[in-house]
Design a protein around this nucleic acid. Structure first.
Lengths: 131, 131
DNA sequence: CCGTATCCGGTTCGATACTG
DNA sequence: CAGTATCGAACCGGATACGG
């Protein structure tokens, strides 16, 4: 590596957490719903995505779709019709994330424990300082 | 379900992406490095975490630690010594995320493909509009 | 050592309006 | 239909300083 000091080595975020790059890639804002929807419902066009995701504005949806296309996780196909039609789909690389989504879905029942932990924390730990 | 209109059903973000709550919980900013470090290096104190993670400020680290403690993913133990000592550790619930982290680590070799896709995109797709 | 308090700058998001 | 342009606002997150 270029950095020579031990401090720099310790301070390297990737060193501290090797999975951080993957997280940034896959779990950035809006990327999860987009990939999930494409993986679950298959190839679809812009407005379908927008309606299924629910609240996202066209601007932000476009931004995220471009990003995911650039990263090779989704594909975009343009049809020069009137009215114009664009179809998005998940790519093979994007589909390779499916097991990951499956793991996440499998863990989701534990959310009940999280909710219980929050209630416990809020009822036992006062908002002010704690020893 | 309680919602009766189809529009509301379609617009429900959780409906659109059931794993979104888990993602928000586990992959919020800084939570991944914190959980990873605790899971990898075991019980440690505040400054150790701070040095391993690298660049995080005490304020933000405290915020995220509190959040994770409240969610039941980590534990905090205070020792009334001089100087005071605090030790954090991953909880059983937090440790149940380990397979997830493992899946992420397994996927990380694909980052090379992402990098290649970006280069391809940047060299073939002009910055201006595309059909 | 382990935080908390305050200020402040930058990203990012949403709302809105408009084009091909 | 599928975006793009512009604007304003909110939300972190970092720097700094201080307290138990």
């Amino acid at each position: 590596m270029i950095e020579t000091t031990a401090a720099a080595t310790d301070a390297d975020p990737v060193q501290a957490c090797p999975i951080a790059p993957v997280v940034d890639l896959v779990f950035s804002r809006w990327t999860t719903p987009i990939l999930w929807t494409l993986n679950e419902y298959g190839r679809q066009r812009f407005v379908e995505l927008q309606r299924r995701i629910g609240v996202i504005t066209p601007k932000v949806l476009t931004q995220r779709l471009r990003q995911l296309e650039r990263d090779g996780l989704i594909t975009r196909e343009y049809f020069a019709e009137v009215p114009p039609r664009v179809e998005y789909d998940i790519s093979p690389l994007g589909r390779s994330l499916a097991p990951l989504f499956h793991s996440l879905a499998e863990w989701s029942p534990n959310l009940a424990k999280v909710e219980a932990a929050r209630i416990h924390f809020d009822t036992t730990q006062p908002p002010n300082r704690r020893p």
